[in-house]
Amino acid sequence: MLEARLPSAVTLKKIIDAVKELVQDANFDCNDSGIALQAMDSSHVALVALLMRAEGFDPYRCDRNIALGINFATLAKVMKCAGNDDNLTIKAGEDADVLSLMFESTNSDRISEFDIKLMDVDADHLGIPETDYSATIKMPSAEFQRICRDLSVMSETVTIEAVKDAVKFIASGDTGSGSITVKPNQAVDKKDMEVTVTLQEPVKLAFSLKYLNHFAKASTLAGSVTLSLSDDVPLMI
């Protein structure tokens, strides 16, 4: 069986909000090291990979490997019923057909319990090789989210061009064009505000802004984001 408790429900709320528009149904693969998810969107263009390590829960108990088939739209609705600061406990029994969630307010005067029916999910797990990327860009995640949103007014596509001292995001459409250039700024106080460009060779690649806007929803999870690019290899964010 699985039993895992998170001190703040907000962590799972943010994760589900970031994933729910890309992934309809997927398995939470649970074992004694934690809870993992690998899922593609329905058009097989985008892959979400997530690992919640056992150390992030207290307590965490998983006796044997189990795959919990989750409908993310349902889980997202249930997670909206949790307060950000609530304790969250998730449980699934042996051969369980439900995932149980319990939200407990900080002073324990309100306890909510929900069961979500589990599904059989056929998982297409991809074998992704280690890649040495031509360019790696680190920047504040809020900045990345804003760039994707701003350039969406011009085009459905963005071209990301990384050169030695800058990265340029370019969008060009029927009504005009726009570009945003971000330069490295390593002398900042806050690590999350840092911008770095690590380059093996210059790259220039185009991507659908629809997917980048989906990925940018995960910016609430971390202060900084890393973009890794190479010719003929999917962008890793």
Partner: peptide, 14 residues
């Protein structure tokens, strides 16, 4: 604009 390629174009099943 260019169409995004399926990930199966790059990565095989595990």
């Amino acid at each position: 604009g260019p169409k995004q390629q399926s990930l199966f174009t790059y990565f095989g099943p595990r």
